[in-house]
């Protein structure tokens, strides 16, 4: 494994910053897509207005998958190249992904109670989604627990890469096993009125997620740069 890139030490210039306006814009777009889809989508034949929970639950689940895919890519990249920045991107995506994973679970429970009649069941889909959440909660706990930067980066890259393998298992669980949760909907099983609402809400949440991951990463880099500066100062002091 190559030595970690300490280029931040040699480059005391302030790390770049994403404009906070990008976040404001993303969040306003999300509010707009939600308002649009709540007000325009018709009651569904079986579950009536409850179908509207789809516009938050399903995008949250998709973005969870996407965030953990980012963790996978950057964890593998870290293990390969040993660049500190890749570790920080993976950590940022893991934190945002775990947050969205938790949101997906809670939204599923809120939807399940009126639609299925139960808050929770231990079927393959719900259980594997909870396991995914626990893996990445463990990932974040690991990062809080290990003090040595290199050790933390290496261990969490391993956990992140292996944990992300659970993503396709979660996705396929409803196809592989018999579950209470229904299989994924597609444009063929959704009325166009619902497809449009789902797509725009997914894109809006995608923008929010990208902003969150970028911002988290920039903060992590700033923290790291400050830490390195403090270390350098301590070493340089008589």
């Amino acid at each position: 494994m190559p030595a970690p890139d300490r280029s931040l030490d040699a480059r005391p210039a302030r790390p770049p910053r994403t404009s906070p306006w990008m976040g404001v814009a993303a969040i306003l777009v999300l509010a707009a897509t939600q308002a649009y889809s709540i007000s325009t989508s018709p009651a569904e034949g079986d579950m009536g207005h409850l179908q509207k929970i789809m516009y938050v639950h399903v995008p949250a689940a998709w973005m969870t998958f996407l965030a953990f895919f980012v963790v996978l890519v950057f964890s593998v990249k870290y293990l390969w190249k040993g660049r500190e920045d890749d570790d920080l991107v993976a950590a940022s995506a893991a934190e945002v992904g775990a947050t969205l994973n938790g949101l997906t679970l809670v939204l599923g429970m809120i939807w399940g109670r009126p639609a299925w009649g139960v808050w929770w069941v231990w079927d393959a889909r719900l259980t594997s989604t909870l396991v995914l959440f626990l893996i990445f909660a463990g990932y974040l706990a690991l990062r809080a627990f290990v003090d040595d930067e290199q050790q933390r980066a290496r261990w969490s890259a391993a956990v992140g890469a292996i944990g992300a393998i659970n993503v396709p298992i979660v996705y396929m669980s409803v196809k592989w096993w018999r579950t209470l949760h229904q299989p994924p909907s597609s444009p063929a099983t959704l009325d166009p009125a619902y497809t449009m609402g789902l797509r725009i809400n997914a894109f809006a949440l995608l923008f929010v997620m990208i902003f969150f991951i970028r911002k988290r990463y920039e903060i992590a880099r700033l923290e790291r740069a400050a830490e390195h500066a403090a270390e350098a100062a301590a070493l340089g002091a008589p």
């Binding site: 034949g45 579950m47 639609a115 018999r178 209470l180 009325d191």
Partner: peptide, 29 residues
């Protein structure tokens, strides 16, 4: 002791005169 409804992956706005429950025939693997 416990009753749960299993929904399909189909979401349709009701149309007049539609026979709504045909789709559940393929619901159970």
């Amino acid at each position: 002791t416990n009753l749960m409804v299993k929904h399909s992956n189909e979401y349709r706005a009701p149309k007049p005169g539609e026979e709504a429950h045909e789709k559940y025939k393929t619901l159970i693997k």
